[in-house]
Simulated scan of single mutants.
Amino acid sequence: MLVLGIESSCDETGIALYDTEYGLLAHELYSQVELHALYGGVVPELASRDHIRRLIPLIQATLKKADRQQSDIDGIAYTAGPGLIGALLTGASVARSLAFALNIPAVGVHHMEGHLLAPMLEEQQPEFPFICLLVSGGHSMIIRVDGIGRYKLLGDTLDDAAGEAFDKTAKLLDLGYPGGPRVSNLALQGTTDRYKFPRPMVDRPGLDMSFSGLKTFTLNTWQKAVKENDATEQTKADICRAFELAVADTLAIKCKRALEQEGLNRLVVSGGVSANREIREKLQALMKKRRGEVFFPRLEFCTDNGAMIAYAGAQRLLASEEQGLDFAATPRWSLEELAPISL
């Protein structure tokens, strides 16, 4: 089955062709970073309008790269939520219209299920069951995964997700947009032992997380440096280093606790923040010490992309799951609401 995947949940337009026999054939991605940089964050209306401009040309480019025709497509998968309502509707309307024209099935995909299954695009795939750490701009979740659609939420963020905390830290330090990569890059120049940031909620039982306090700690640390005439680029780098270490340590502690609680020794880490070097190294060290396994998507599939949507949709289409002509975008949508499938 040849499946076209369409991702348009926020500020990246992703298209991919996934063949259930031969794997990923081609993918294209357009990022709106430059469009939103002027405003210091994503402007939903501008994001929706840009998706409209990009979707059809990217579909054509992906088909050409894979040496396929529209008539070769057997099914379409599109992101139905969560995300920005206007951005979701642009992708959904193109997907449903094309599916109707080609008389093929279409299925709406949960954006976070796409991220969760992104490591399945790699040659070495994790076996079920496993613990998944999903860390992105809007989500920080720890999930027990017993199969596709068999998800149990073990821990969630109570306020700012890890990605949000990175972006807000960048804004507090006037590092520009997008914030997360800029904090990480500056952290490489930072001194490890100058500042010690708290590891939030690690002294409490459970797997829930909170990162808003780190943002406040960053602000207080920077304001003190300004007051002491020490507002230098090196100080910014040292703060970024301390912040990044605090997030990485917190996530590692929570993952270790989840693995022990569930009696598992296999960890999957996905979502945009999973591209962070420090977080990867901490979790790799954790699993090496435990003699367990850890799986990451390749860097290009950590952020939003069409390949993960094509893969997740293909699994559901293979299980004969599809929607009718009516479609809806779901800005808020729990993973635990998804139906389990058996392949």
Results as ranks from 00 to 15, higher is better:
F128R: 09
S136G: 10
P181Y: 08
L186M: 13
L89D: 02
Q124G: 00
Q124R: 14
L89H: 02
A161F: 02
R144Q: 15
H139E: 10
H111W: 06
D156V: 12
L173A: 08
L121P: 01
S97C: 14
M120P: 00
L98N: 03
G108D: 05
G108A: 09
D167R: 12
F128W: 11
L89P: 00
L175C: 05
T90G: 04
V183W: 13
S140V: 05
Y151N: 10
A170P: 04
D167H: 10
G114P: 01
A92D: 00
L133G: 09
D160R: 09
L175N: 03
T157F: 01
I148T: 08
P129C: 15
F100T: 12
T90K: 14
K168S: 04
S140W: 07
D156I: 11
F128I: 01
L154F: 10
A106E: 00
D160H: 06
L134F: 09
P105L: 13
L186P: 03
I142S: 11
D160F: 07
G91P: 01
D156H: 07
A99G: 12
A101S: 14
L98R: 12
M112E: 06
H139N: 14
R182D: 00
V145A: 15
D174N: 14
H111N: 10
G147W: 07
L116P: 00
A170F: 04
G155D: 04
R150L: 12
M112L: 15
P105I: 07
G179L: 08
A187P: 02
H115Q: 05
L116G: 02
S97T: 15
A187R: 13
A170Q: 09
G176A: 10
A99S: 14
F100K: 14
A101C: 09
H139S: 13
L172G: 00
G91S: 08
A101W: 09
L102V: 00
D156R: 15
R96E: 01
G114V: 09
P119R: 12
H110N: 13
G137V: 06
H139W: 07
L88Q: 11
Y177Q: 03
D167L: 12
L88V: 03
M141K: 04
L98S: 09
A162D: 02
D160Q: 08
H115C: 04
G155L: 14
G147E: 10
A101R: 11
A95C: 08
Q124I: 10
C132F: 01
R144F: 03
L134D: 03
T169D: 00
A99R: 12
Q124W: 00
Q124P: 00
G137H: 06
L116F: 08
E113L: 12
F128H: 11
P129T: 11
T90C: 15
L188T: 10
A106L: 04
C132Y: 01
N185R: 15
S93H: 05
P105K: 13
G137E: 13
G137L: 12
K171G: 00
I148A: 03
R144W: 02
P178M: 04
T157M: 04
P119W: 03
L121D: 02
G149N: 10
E164S: 09
Y177F: 15
G163K: 13
Y177I: 05
E127M: 11
Q125T: 08
E164M: 10
L153Y: 09
D156M: 10
P119D: 01
P129F: 15
L89A: 13
D174F: 05
G138M: 14
G180Q: 09
